[in-house]
Computed example of a mutant assay.
Amino acid sequence: MSAHLDQIRDQQRETWDRFSAGWKKWDALVLGWLAPFGQAMIRQAAIKDGDQVLDVAAGTGEPGLTVAASIPKGRVTVTDLSERMLQVANENASNRGLTNFETRISDAGALPFSDATFDAVLCRFGFMFFPDVAAAAEQLRRVAKPDARVCAAVWGAPAKNAWATTIMSTIARHVELPKPPAGAPGLFRCAPEGLMTALFTDAGLRDVREEEVSTTMVHDTPEDYWAFMTEIAAPVVAGLGQADVATRDRIKVAVLDLARQASRAGKVELRSTATIVTGTR
């Protein structure tokens, strides 16, 4: 890996370690919010009891934890760059009484497993942040057994993800944000149509297909939405960090107003859309 990619990887590790407390605090909300994406992946991966399953860049443990609960005779290994995120994953596994679940600190571009080890390989919302997406796709294919399925979820187009754009677009209207270089890690890096299909195909996977899945992020109040996004989203914190106090206050007022406009039956509801891509080894 080049020095530039090493730097990106190290930045990612530092970021996820730093925000691990926020992810732990909001874990229950995230669990419900992202569950439909994990369920779609599990269905596409055709996981069955007794399987050995790998979940790459799993953070606090999902969807690997759900898989482990569903295959008591199988085993799930989850990886992540962030040791602190995996500490939360281990706590979650312990709290659920799961004994067929283990964690490994690992770079997705250099997985520490032998070829053809796993019956299914998952990666939910990790590809957007990998320094080298092609290397990661090849690694996921490499560790999958013949005929095993490799399945990933990535965020769709910004227009279909109000949960993120409600606050990020508001920040961008008030603060001049630096334009990231082409291919830099970011939330919507893998959103372009066909990008993930091409990536999986080029990695040597066959029968590659995509499925769009949408759900809703729900918060009790606009203030809860603001707290959530400012405690778990690094781009939000970075953007607000460039604003002075008065500008930050104006941003907050605007975001809260937009969140109120998105309220239904007293709850803030914001669309969330992902692409589920699946290929066969």
Score class of each variant (00 low, 15 high):
P235R: 02
E193Y: 06
L240V: 07
I167K: 01
V236C: 13
W163I: 15
I251D: 05
W155A: 06
P235K: 07
D207K: 07
L187I: 13
V208R: 03
P181E: 15
A233L: 14
W155M: 10
D257I: 05
V213G: 06
T215H: 09
A164K: 10
T247R: 11
D207A: 12
L195S: 11
T166S: 13
V253R: 00
A198V: 11
K160H: 15
L177I: 06
R250D: 12
P185I: 07
K179N: 13
W163D: 11
A243V: 00
G186Y: 11
R206A: 08
A234F: 11
W155G: 08
D224K: 11
D224S: 13
I171H: 13
E231K: 00
A164M: 14
D257T: 15
S214A: 14
D207C: 00
D244W: 08
M168Q: 14
F188N: 02
E211N: 10
T165K: 04
E193R: 13
G156R: 06
F228L: 07
T166E: 07
G194N: 00
L199H: 04
G241V: 06
T166L: 15
T165Y: 04
F200D: 05
R250C: 09
A191G: 07
P222R: 00
E193I: 12
A182L: 11
I171Q: 12
G156K: 03
T170S: 11
K252Y: 01
V253F: 01
I232L: 12
R206Y: 07
P178C: 01
V236G: 00
D220Y: 01
G239S: 06
A243F: 00
S214N: 01
A184K: 09
V213F: 09
W155V: 02
L256V: 05
D249A: 14
A203N: 01
A191C: 06
Y225I: 01
W163T: 10
D202R: 14
T221Q: 08
E211H: 03
H219T: 13
R248Y: 08
A162L: 14
V175Q: 05
D244F: 03
R206G: 03
E231S: 15
T247P: 01
P185L: 09
K179Q: 14
H174L: 08
E193H: 05
A243Q: 01
A227N: 12
W155D: 12
E212H: 12
R248P: 03
T201Y: 04
S169V: 02
G194C: 05
E223Q: 13
R250T: 15
M168E: 10
A203T: 00
L256P: 02
E210M: 02
N161D: 09
T230A: 01
Q242T: 08
D207V: 02
